[in-house]
Design a protein around this nucleic acid. Structure first.
Length: 264
DNA sequence: ATGGTGGGTAGCCCA
């Protein structure tokens, strides 16, 4: 059995205490972090090593974005893509080298896309769409059994958001983004593991804005984080959980971790 | 309809 977690941590240095708590309590084999907001030189390697997570692939950037995959089972860095073609650190891929040998885990942080869902008025929205288009070209050429996880910054289903009608013109849930994400999915035949285990139309959120008070009461969440797998790999997924309680931990991220277990 | 809260980092950018 191998378990893989994904968590947009919104500064790994600030939140190392809750990361340590998560690794101690849940002990996933692999943890994919997004928005680490640091370069490799100041990544807290020692803290991860002390917890038994001695294998790392870090693609960092000063102040913004950045992704890291840490593991207690052996892996090697496999790829780094710049799907936005602007030098931002939003992807790192690893390949498992012993247990689960040959399995590729791609860790991605899709651009949020700004506030206005129109590429003419908002450069960031165009960059988000272009990022996804390049990711789609790449997905069509995948050969290894692949798990792609991370903050996709799109909530595709009506049951992935607190209010479908209210959010149709809000970046992350527009029909155009949903369509572009679907093309990416179809390019490789990815399976949405989260929704294999928590079926539509059951409520499934992974992010609650810091700006919304009483997140548990108002529950204005969205499912921005995903774990998608090649069909053969998805068939080996035996469990999937959303750790909503982490949203209430001290100095929380606005995202919560997802964990999938595989019979590998 | 608006602004609301966070993080990184040094005057804003980004989410």
């Amino acid at each position: 059995m191998i378990s893989v977690a994904s968590w947009n941590i919104n500064s790994v240095r600030l939140r190392m205490p809750i990361v340590a708590r998560f690794l101690t309590e849940e002990a996933p084999d692999v943890l994919c972090l997004q928005e680490i907001k640091t370069v490799e030189e100041t990544f807290p390697f020692e803290a991860f090593n002390a917890l038994g997570y001695t294998h790392h692939a870090v693609h960092g950037q000063k102040g913004y974005h950045g992704v890291a995959t840490v593991s207690r089972i052996p892996l090697k860095e496999y790829s780094r893509h710049d799907w936005q073609d602007n030098g931002e650190a939003r992807h790192v891929g690893v390949e498992l080298t012993e247990q689960g040998k040959g399995t590729v885990i791609e860790n991605v942080y899709v651009p949020a896309g700004g506030d206005i869902p129109d590429r003419e008025q908002n450069v960031k929205f165009g960059q988000k769409l272009d990022f996804l288009a390049r990711m789609t070209d790449w997905a069509g050429k995948i050969e290894a059994p692949t798990l792609i996880v991370g903050d996709f910054n799109i909530a595709p289903l009506p049951s992935d958001v607190w209010g479908h009608k209210q959010l149709l013109k809000v970046v992350s849930h527009t029909p155009l983004e949903v369509q572009v994400l679907q093309k990416f999915k179809d390019a490789h035949g990815f399976i949405d593991i989260g929704r294999e285990h928590i079926r539509d139309p059951e409520r499934y959120f992974s992010w609650w804005s810091y700006r919304s008070k009483d997140w548990r009461v108002n529950d204005r969440g969205r499912r921005l984080d995903h774990m998608w797998a090649s069909p053969d790999l998805a068939a080996k997924s035996t469990g999937h959980r959303v750790l909503e309680d982490c949203r209430d931990w001290e100095k929380p991220s606005d995202h919560v971790p997802l964990i999938t277990e595989f019979d590998l």
